[in-house]
Simulated assay, not measured.
Amino acid sequence: MGLSIFVFFRSSRIYVVDTAKIPRAPSLHKVVQPTDILQKTGLAYPHTSHCLGSGDIMVSCLGDKEGNATGNGFLLLDSDFNVKGRWEKPGHSPLFGYDFWYQPRHNTMISSSWGAPAAFSKGFNLQHVSDGLYGRHLYVYSWPDGELKQTLDLGNAGLLPLETRFLHDPSKDTGFVGSALSSNMVRFFKTTDGAWSHEVAISVTPLKVRNWILPEMPGLISDFLISLDDRYLYFVNWFHGDVRQYNIEDPSKPVLTGQVWVGGLLQKGSDVVSVSEEGAESQFSVPVIKGNRLRGGPQMIQLSLDGKRLYVTNSLFSVWDQQFYGPDFVKKGSHMLQIDVNTEQGGLTINPNFFVDFGTEPEGPALAHEMRYPGGDCTSDIWI
């Protein structure tokens, strides 16, 4: 029996689904109730899950039951999905939680920091960043014993660090994290003295705009991934609307090799316009796919195992979806696109024949978020 974990952090439930019968009839295997998690760990708002070599499952949690970030940490489930407890040592919890990735050969796990659920669950407020309700740190733990060894302060270049990925090659001591609000890809790496450091590897320039809440619009890097051969890095700008491909054969010097626009706040027909230094207004051309104008912006991505098909959904978080893209987006639901990848020279092309409309689902309209392959994929597989 193949099992997948579906995590819903708004309800703090963890759903375990039998995927052996996918695609036709997946069935519910077990529900890990929030009361059980709270009683044994004090944790709530589960987010990212990874399987461990021990057979346990580890899940990052974003806060306590009231949505305070002070209650976050890492939940451990056994192979039968019973709550075992917390992974990190007492007193070694991060200030904020979100994503994590471990690299066993370097005895290291690194986690990122979104913010307090009590803040982001009500929509984004820039003042909350100044108030300290959002993160800007990476947390470096010893693996597998859960001791917090370092806290890397990314500063203003790393506001709201979200997805965290090591290179897939388990011998490599480098990886990346996407900082959403700063719109930078930050590379982290081990130094000669065995400590960990970081640097900005890619910057997305904010655009001067009119008819928006701020005079400048960040790209808002909400997701990224690394191809299984560690050759290419892909990321999305949820506000600007573009998907990018970079060659990272030299991880310290990424090279842009592909870029396409699949939505965003600046697409033609939008009220928001980009303004040049000379005052000229412009917007990006976004194609119509199978008669559908693309809604929202690119948000989560997943790559086929051969690296040739990049799939894109467009819902970040329903409250944020409505705040930035309006109630019509939520009412119509989201969609999934396919981008064809040139894996030899690099390059991205939108597939004009692929469009999955979640607005027409029987229980819809639905807001599609993360994608997973039942047998493992670029954002779930970790090698020992």
Rank of each mutant, 00 (worst) to 15 (best):
D271Y: 09
E370C: 05
D242T: 12
Q127C: 00
G307N: 11
R86P: 01
S222Y: 00
Y373A: 00
D99R: 11
L3D: 03
Q323F: 03
F355R: 13
I221E: 01
T41L: 02
T349F: 10
R165L: 09
S11Q: 08
L305N: 15
W196L: 11
S270D: 14
D56S: 14
H369Y: 13
F81Q: 13
P215L: 02
I301N: 03
P215K: 10
E249G: 07
R136Q: 14
A118T: 12
P365T: 08
T35I: 06
P46Y: 08
G291R: 02
E278H: 08
V286K: 08
K149I: 04
V177P: 04
T205D: 03
F9I: 04
L316Q: 04
M371D: 07
T192C: 04
F317V: 02
I37R: 03
V129Y: 15
Y311T: 04
Y102P: 01
S252H: 06
R187T: 02
G375F: 13
D230L: 05
Q259Y: 08
P374R: 14
Q283C: 06
A157D: 14
D340N: 15
D78S: 04
L52F: 11
I289G: 13
N351F: 07
L303N: 01
I5F: 03
Y15W: 05
K190L: 14
S4L: 07
L38D: 15
R293T: 14
G279V: 10
T70C: 12
Q245E: 15
E363V: 00
F329M: 15
R295A: 11
I339W: 06
V288L: 04
K190H: 06
I384L: 13
Q345H: 10
I248Q: 00
P206L: 09
